[in-house]
């Protein structure tokens, strides 16, 4: 396959970036999108040009690092996948593909397609945990009865990998699907109850402080989420915050 690429190039956080056109050839339809980027970078390096910086780590859909906005969608046109799981068979020979970094004021660009998502870390640090006594007399978690339904729902929420596709997709750059998932995974379990009030208050306060937008329930995040996190987690977070204030 031969492809035309329009890629966001930006030297550093303070530089002004722009879309730059590239032609890439020798692309197999069996390659992943990141492998296609590798081929392009090899070509750039052999020509003595600066390769395109992009985040990647596990390349198996677990780490959530590969933050690319491809043809107007987070992680590209397929569903339930990260960029590394997107295959070139989704495109046709001769296609033009636009590749941009995830855009949000709270996700500043570091270089090219690499964005700083540490805002998510700070939200997590504000309350996305439970305090467990690890001094040697820790209670066996299996002795606490939890319904299958609650365990399944908590696990569904916990599958969030914090990739930021929800923010990138949301027309308001809202982080509510991420925070909703993180609040939900604890709100559904008995271990999460003790710190429930502070957790939701602090995580929502940190989310607002980071400069994410307000959710308008378009549902775009749920569609683009590689892990299928449901809007129901946002509704649960809303309930949790209301409960915490009453």
């Amino acid at each position: 396959m031969k492809l035309k690429l329009k890629i966001w190039r930006q030297k550093n956080a303070s530089a002004k970036g722009q879309m730059v056109d590239y032609d890439v050839s020798d692309i197999s339809e069996h390659m992943s999108f990141l492998e296609m980027m590798d081929v392009l970078n090899e070509q750039l390096i052999s020509k003595g040009e600066d390769p395109i910086a992009f985040d990647h780590d596990c390349r198996e859909g677990i780490c959530g690092m590969c933050s690319m906005y491809i043809n107007g969608e987070a992680h590209g046109p397929d569903r339930g996948i990260t960029t590394c799981q997107l295959h070139m068979r989704m495109f046709k020979d001769g296609d033009t593909i636009t590749i941009e970094p995830f855009r949000a004021a709270a996700f500043p660009v570091i270089k090219d397609l690499v964005v700083d998502r540490s805002a998510f870390d700070r939200i997590q640090q504000a309350g996305g945990y439970i305090s467990v006594n690890t001094s040697g007399n820790t209670q066996d978690a299996n002795t606490i009865p939890i319904s299958k339904h609650a365990a399944d729902e908590a696990m569904d929420a916990a599958t969030c990998i914090g990739c930021g596709a929800c923010v990138a997709t949301c027309k308001n750059s809202s982080a509510m699907l991420f925070v909703g998932a993180k609040v939900s995974q604890y709100a559904l379990l008995p271990q999460g109850q003790i710190e429930a009030v502070d957790r939701v208050k602090n995580m929502v306060a940190q989310m607002d402080l980071e400069g994410f937008g307000n959710c308008t329930n378009t549902g775009a995040c749920e569609i683009e989420c590689p892990k299928g996190i449901s809007l129901d987690t946002i509704a649960r977070m809303n309930r949790e915050l209301m409960k915490a204030h009453i």
């Binding site: 906005y69 107007g72 969608e73 941009e100 004021a105 660009v109 027309k171 937008g213 307000n214 569609i223």
Partner: peptide
């Protein structure tokens, strides 16, 4: 809220396919 939400993305996308994941009415309230 609309004004605040606009502020939350200072650089807009070169290409954005909103119709792929949400309804026209939800994006244009």
């Amino acid at each position: 809220l609309e004004w605040k939400n606009k502020k939350a993305r200072k650089v807009t996308y070169f290409k954005n396919n909103g119709a792929a994941n949400s309804t026209w009415m939800s994006r244009n309230m």
